[in-house]
């Protein structure tokens, strides 16, 4: 009898373990967020900070939900995302063009190396005053800053990507008398793609940050400007609601770009490895 009950116990334990393995991350993750909200609530109500300046989640979340019904809120999201999308698109196209030209010639690559490496670490936000002078509080200011930052991120990935073409593969292709067009299609493009996708994913995150930043400082209409407005109107719950909104937008962008990356790179080792694990 003991062996039967022991076996049953073992089965139950392994079932529990299986359940834990499958749903553990979800349970714990939800728990983590609930705990964080609780800490925030308790700190906001009993903590040393002025309650008016740090509203508890029980005030912020209703404000957030209420803002979902306001057209003003959606217009601001639309404005921010328009700048984000346009800026990102301009950066991708221009960086791809420049990167392809520089990357495909060894001479150009060597000669431009120092300039590219010098211009890249220059913080784009330094140019915000220039953008403000040139464009005023209009979308052009956002685009200028976004493009300046994202262009370098992508262009460097493109240059590295082209340079990374496997030597043996290239020589094999040449020995096989592969034409220029096929060479680009089957050799250069597949090598470049993972680099390009990485660059675009990074740039997508940076573009959102910069769009919001320019709106905040220059006053271009959008979510960042709304936050500044809420500060002037002395409405901390609205500020926190907007911050939550930008966080959700950031997650959404991250999620979408990851999804696209997995789709486009389904054949690449990094993605296949993820599936297997």
């Amino acid at each position: 009898m003991t062996t039967v009950s022991q076996a049953q116990a073992a089965v139950a334990q392994s079932k529990r373990r299986y359940w834990w393995h499958k749903y553990g991350p979800l349970t714990m993750g939800v728990l983590g967020i609930v705990l964080a909200l609780l800490v925030w609530q308790v700190y906001a109500v009993f903590g040393p900070v002025n309650r008016h300046h740090l509203p508890p989640p029980t005030e912020v979340i209703p404000t957030f939900l209420r803002s979902l019904t306001l057209s003003e809120f959606w217009v601001a999201i639309g404005q921010t995302m328009t700048a984000w999308a346009l800026g990102l698109a301009i950066s991708i196209v221009s960086a791809l063009l420049v990167g392809l030209v520089i990357g495909s010639s060894r001479v150009l690559r060597v000669w431009t190396h120092s300039t590219v490496e010098f211009l890249r670490p220059i913080p784009a936000v330094g140019l915000i005053p220039v953008a403000a002078l040139l464009f005023g509080p209009r979308i052009g200011a956002e685009l200028m800053i976004i493009v300046f930052a994202c262009f370098w991120i992508i262009v460097i990935q493109v240059i590295y990507g082209i340079a990374d073409v496997d030597k043996v593969a290239r020589e094999t292709a040449r020995t096989m008398r592969m034409g220029q067009v096929d060479m680009v299609k089957y050799l250069v493009f597949p090598t470049l793609l993972p680099y390009l996708v990485t660059g675009i994913r990074l740039a997508a995150t940076v573009a959102l940050i910069l769009a919001v930043t320019v709106e905040l400082i220059v006053g271009t209409p959008g979510l960042g400007h709304q936050v500044a407005q809420a500060q002037i109107n002395d409405s901390p719950p609205a500020m926190f609601a907007l911050i939550i909104t930008t966080g959700l937008l950031g997650i959404l962008i991250n999620f979408v770009t990851r999804f696209i990356a997995n789709r486009v790179l389904f054949w690449h080792a990094s993605v296949r490895g993820e599936v297997r694990a």
């Binding site: 960042g224 500044a228 911050i243 966080g247």
Partner: peptide, 9 residues
Amino acid sequence: AIPSTIMIP
């Protein structure tokens, strides 16, 4: 995911 600049205000 929250752009840290927006925390400034």
